[in-house]
Design a protein around this nucleic acid. Structure first.
Length: 245
DNA sequence: CCAGACGTTGTT
DNA sequence: GTCTGG
DNA sequence: CCAGACGTTGTT
DNA sequence: GTCTGG
């Protein structure tokens, strides 16, 4: 699945990674963009919503459907399965007109770990990213919700699929990462039909690298580059004088 | 007709 | 909003 | 995903 | 144990 990710590039770098795709960044709310090394559900991040001219804007992670009575439902709607997204009542109506993409520099997965000797099992967090440090674009769905006092809430969910071979040992699900060539079809209804868009929801074909990180990422309150540092380096930093454990 | 769900993950 | 279940 | 809360009353 | 919040 995908329950935590990073986004630390500048807005310019993020937009440049779309390689000239025509998007409306007017009033996009991409600036200012604080680097975040530990994006958790309910956090606002940049997204690009589909349309004839795709439009950038900030949205909150955790889909709150427009019909929801309680926006707390968004705390649990952080992922949508690609295999069933076209059928599930909560998602299928969004597939037609509410597709979006979500930029990330990488994401975290927790690998279950069985201690030798039948001891306690635990979980080790891993960070997964492009070896060339390219921006990854997740496939998502979005919606807008209005509170009783008419406050607008824009939210999204990240679509998941089976893992690419490079990360299959870590976890049996991964976010859908769109190839650059697929982004226009995902975002622009004039570039193909819905079936074509759904066909893009596949395990990632590109290169990925993965390595273990420290437990620092576990708490959503931690937002430091050390969250994505290799485990040994992060542990060393933990031992620096003056740092409480 | 109205009421109630609408989701994923992992674990058992 | 829309569908399923009762 | 993980962390953290999980409660009421009355008083300031 | 289970739910909410980040």
């Amino acid at each position: 699945m995908c329950g935590r990710f990073t986004l630390h590039d500048t807005p310019e770098e993020i937009i440049a990674s779309l390689d000239g795709l025509d998007i409306d960044v007017d009033g996009a709310g991409l600036e200012p963009l604080e680097p975040c090394y530990n994006v958790a559900p309910t956090i606002y991040t940049p997204t690009v919503a589909g349309g004839e001219t795709p439009t950038a804007g900030r949205r909150r992670w955790g889909l709150v459907p427009h019909w929801a009575k309680d926006p707390a439902i968004g705390n649990r709607m952080i992922n949508a399965r690609s295999e069933t997204v076209a059928e599930k009542p909560a998602f299928r109506n969004l597939v037609a007109k509410k597709r979006c993409i979500v930029p990330a520099n990488g994401y975290y997965e927790w690998k279950k770990h069985q201690a030798p000797g039948g001891g306690r099992s635990g979980k080790i967090p891993y960070y997964i990213r492009s070896p060339q440090h390219r921006v990854l674009w997740f496939a998502g769905l979005h919606d807008n919700w209005f509170s009783a006092d008419d406050k607008r809430l824009d939210t999204y969910t990240i679509i998941t699929t089976r893992p690419a071979a490079a990360v299959a040992d870590i976890h049996h699900r991964m976010p859908v990462i769109l190839p650059r060539d697929g982004i226009e079809q995902w975002l622009r209804p004039d570039r193909g039909d819905q079936a074509g868009a759904l066909a893009l929801l596949q395990p990632y074909n590109g290169e990925l690298e993965a390595y273990a990180v420290s437990q620092m990422v576990n708490s959503p309150r931690n937002n430091s580059p050390l969250c994505m540092a290799p485990a040994a380096a992060a542990d060393d930093a933990d031992l620096l004088p003056g740092r409480s454990r």
